[in-house]
Nucleic acid binder design. Sequence first.
DNA 1: GTGGTCTAGACCACC
DNA 2: GTGGTCTAGACCACG
Lengths: 126, 126, 126, 126
Amino acid sequence: MQLAINPGDEVPIYRQICRQITDLIAGGRLGPGEKLPSHRELAARLVIAPLTVKKAYDVLEAEGFLGTQRGRGTYVSLTLPAIDPALLRERLRESARRLVREATLGDVSLDEIVELLRDVTQEMKP
Amino acid sequence: MQLAINPGDEVPIYRQICRQITDLIAGGRLGPGEKLPSHRELAARLVIAPLTVKKAYDVLEAEGFLGTQRGRGTYVSLTLPAIDPALLRERLRESARRLVREATLGDVSLDEIVELLRDVTQEMKP
Amino acid sequence: MQLAINPGDEVPIYRQICRQITDLIAGGRLGPGEKLPSHRELAARLVIAPLTVKKAYDVLEAEGFLGTQRGRGTYVSLTLPAIDPALLRERLRESARRLVREATLGDVSLDEIVELLRDVTQEMKP
Amino acid sequence: MQLAINPGDEVPIYRQICRQITDLIAGGRLGPGEKLPSHRELAARLVIAPLTVKKAYDVLEAEGFLGTQRGRGTYVSLTLPAIDPALLRERLRESARRLVREATLGDVSLDEIVELLRDVTQEMKP
DNA sequence: GTGGTCTAGACCACC
DNA sequence: GTGGTCTAGACCACG
């Protein structure tokens, strides 16, 4: 598992980790039951404080993506969380609106956006 | 001009205001030269602190979307800011990635996303 | 709001706080929309580290009992979380089993247990 | 003897084992003098480390529920331990409080809880 | 002043 | 070794 964090970024480190791990899961590069590095090890690799990684793991566990077993480690959940369809729709709408807003301000056409989406999808698939 | 803010949201109130105003501009519902309500008035309408609206206006002015004329009020800039193409590309990519990530986790196909984008675009146009 | 924590206890401090706050909510002594003390203030009162209280608040927020607004404070949610009925049943069953087990080992009759439940209920109501 | 453990649970595995064995004793399904499987055998059956089962047996022996005879195995004690009444009362109170808390949050009436208790009691008797 | 994040370091329980 | 908890202290962003 390979993550890249950017300490100077506006989005907090622990959220960057969350985002990248859910990306890996969504892309199938992290499968159900797979073991993650211990929070200490990952912290050492990323050269950040262990608690920061642990917070990311905690959030993902609360959201149902990960499960931990004391003394044994942290694993990808066997059953990924079902999302409330109404909530999902609203989230997607908001993200779509954001994308369109940014595109409009930059004079980027809808077709170019669709192209970009395909590109990004390829990038994320395993 | 009609805005809706959500105090409990993760994104700060002043940014919610910024976002919605740029939305209105991008959608053409706020044209160049148009006058905005005073920050005090808008604050009263939204039931928040005037300083919060002021901060939003300040940010938008710094970004070139708005201009203020002392004693006369705040107006939409006559010439909207040109955005650094590289920065724009990166922002779009990130937003696209986010959309794809959410769609994948929710089992929503790319075609459905494209449909959603068209829908949202219609909604935002004046 | 008045809490009592026991640092030597087997159950972690932050969970003691969670438990007592949900108790207050369940008993109606903390109503929807009510403001909680800041995590720093509560920490000072309980003579523990602020982060410990914050963790409790974070957990309760993730569970839907509390909501926070940056710069303004932490409040009891206006809409308390709906619990999955199946999950609830299982939890209740497990708690009931535990109670019966302890009672059996101590030769306490079911009637005495019912009496105890009434007693405890009174104690928790406002 | 049939146990079910859940590695992902918040309560440690060795305590899950303790709890279930005391359950069996309290319910009469494990009588005084009865032989338990060796810790190695039980560990193999549960697919966990032998040391974990050993720890559970050790705790139960320390509490007086089990007795071991070197080279012969582990047995249920002929005389079950008397429990400190004050400690018992406090434990019962806490478990009762927990049950009431969960019931209140889930809008379950006290009568339904009493019904549930009778049900569970039946289930646990041999 | 309030919450949000990060750090460094400690001790414990579990497997 | 792993995760779980707690501390003391720092800096930032928000309202």
